[in-house]
């Protein structure tokens, strides 16, 4: 399987704080790669660094063999990376329709098909199509954020904690959407909910204190009690 994204020993500062101190991982095409770790370990910063939102100071980020480390965020996005941030990034004063419209890079048949697919998967978005994003529930905002990132033909989706703060029934829905998207795109998922990570993930990387420390396939992790206890705090 070919490697789509290669993160090599990246270092990132936020202000004076040295957040990432050597994170490396590889994302294979067509897989869901899950970044696991405790709160504050550097998972979100890793995704933000890939997007250029917290630029790296050292290391390299390669997409399809091209170095994207020095590009601006909008250029990185235009290389085919969709981003679902931890806070969902919904434009509260724009309607659901406008939130989708602003993301739409092309209005071709394939894009409209993807929109259709998302509206079928998340009928709430269709119901509240003309409603301002700020008035949606947390789950609906998450659905909108995922649908918006999926709308364009992105090669890679970076999804940050999509289950955070959501009711179990909504988490199921989000999981279902990730499984649907998995057929067409590659995904890097940051997730604290281990059951969800297990349900959708293929490969895992554990980030601890700003470093990538362990990797393997998800099934191996499920069977490794010691690793789960040591880095994830679950027995």
């Amino acid at each position: 399987m070919t490697t789509l994204l290669e993160v090599n020993d990246i270092q990132t500062y936020i202000g004076q704080y040295h957040i990432l101190q050597g994170v490396s991982f590889q994302v294979k095409k067509g897989e869901v790669t899950v970044l696991l770790g405790r709160n504050g370990a550097g998972k979100t910063t890793s995704l933000r660094s890939i997007m250029g939102l917290t630029p790296i100071t050292e290391g390299q980020i390669m997409l399809n063999g091209t170095n994207i480390s020095k590009l601006g965020t909008y250029q990185i996005a235009n290389k085919g990376i969709g981003f679902v941030p931890e806070d969902q990034g919904i434009f509260g004063e724009l309607t659901v329709e406008e939130n989708m419209k602003i993301a739409m890079q092309k209005q071709d048949e394939a894009t409209l098909n993807r929109l259709d697919k998302m509206l079928t998967l998340f009928p709430d978005l269709k119901t509240y199509w003309k409603k301002q994003g700020g008035y949606l529930s947390g789950g609906q905002k998450q659905m909108l954020s995922i649908a918006r990132a999926y709308l364009n033909k992105n090669e890679l989706l970076l999804i940050d904690e999509p289950s955070k703060g959501l009711a179990p029934i909504v988490v199921e829905k989000v999981m279902e959407s990730i499984m649907e998207m998995k057929d067409e795109t590659t995904i890097v998922l940051v997730e604290q909910n281990f059951r969800m990570a297990m349900g959708v993930g293929d490969t895992y990387y554990i980030i601890d204190d700003g470093r990538s420390v362990e990797t393997g396939n998800m099934q191996e992790l499920a069977d490794n009690e010691e690793l789960k206890r040591k880095y994830l705090g679950i027995a």
Binding site: L53, Y74, F91, E98
Partner: peptide, 24 residues
């Protein structure tokens, strides 16, 4: 228009507008 939407969205969340591929 899309440019109008972008301006309104950019005021709310510049980072997200850029993450959608727009040069803010």
């Amino acid at each position: 228009t899309k440019i109008g939407l972008t301006v309104r969205a950019g005021v709310m969340n510049k980072e997200m507008v850029q993450a959608l591929g727009i040069n803010i």
